[in-house]
Simulated scan of single mutants.
Amino acid sequence: MSTEFDNSWSALLNPGRATQYFNIDYPRLSLDTSAYSNSTALWLAELSRLIYRKDKNKKNKLIIPNRSEILKKVALQETRYFSQGNTAGAIVEYQQAVQFAVLVFCGTQESQGWFTNLNTLPTRWPEGGRVHRGFKKALENVWPAVETYLSTLKVPVFYTGHSLGAALATLAAARRPPQALYTFGTPRVGDAEFSKIFENIKAYRIVNHRDLIVTVPLAALGFCHVGELHYLAHDNKMLVKPNEEVVVADRKKADFTLQNSVNHSRWLDPPECLSDHAPINYVAHLERQL
């Protein structure tokens, strides 16, 4: 059974509480090209959702099933987990017929993460341009250890993440280019000069309809997006590289998922501009693209 849309506060603020993952028969991930692929996007969206799931709860009790058990069902293995300050993520590997690895960063989990998001003062990026100070600091918490492990891999490596995790994956790609970068609900990360780094990097930016987080930090502050836009419209169609006028017009239209959600009391749910940011709704949309 395919993943259902979930427009609840829990899906938005506590995505790691979900227990069902990889709900459909996922197609084999193709590594022949770094061009955009719906199947690759789906794999990486689900990993970006799963990384929110913790191994222990606040009472230090094990959460069942854990990430390793979930990944094992689809022949994946979490070979490295890193966590420092408010930055967390993992490297996941597939080592059967087709070998690849994924560097996946976790999005905002605790209050510290929101301070990271709000620390928007631009700061110099060594490879060129200026970037969001909070995002840069968050990546620097773990980058030495991450880069050391990446240097040992001899297989194609994809980078991904949702929200704050997407911003960190973008910065990581600017440091060490991947096979391809897929981001979900990413905020803006750097300025126009920084974006030039991505002229030769395969980067794909997936945006779900009215997702508010993709509009910050404001362009008026000098921030801009990177990567090829793949926009999930109100009727679930995927629009590739739509212009701004098309996106603005579509964001005014009601989302069909409001009638296809597991929630029935819309007045208790977050507004659509927030519920569209929930990781599960990215996954649900991308399953339907296949």
Rank of each mutant, 00 (worst) to 15 (best):
D250F: 00
H264T: 15
A278M: 07
D255A: 08
R251Q: 15
L268M: 14
F256C: 03
S261P: 04
A254V: 06
P270Y: 11
L268E: 10
A254Q: 07
H285Y: 15
D250I: 03
W267L: 13
L258Q: 08
H277W: 10
K252C: 02
E244K: 13
L274K: 07
W267H: 12
L274F: 15
P271M: 10
D250E: 11
D269E: 15
V283F: 09
N260E: 13
H285D: 12
K253C: 02
D269G: 00
V262S: 07
C273E: 14
V283N: 08
S265Y: 12
H285Q: 13
L258W: 04
D276S: 15
L286E: 04
I280P: 05
F256N: 02
D255G: 03
A278S: 14
D276K: 10
Q259T: 14
Y282T: 10
L274H: 06
E272F: 09
D255C: 08
D269Q: 14
Y282F: 15
Q259L: 12
H264S: 14
F256A: 01
E287W: 04
D269N: 15
Y282I: 08
V246N: 00
E272I: 14
A249R: 09
V248H: 01
R251L: 00
E245N: 07
N281Y: 09
V248S: 04
V262M: 08
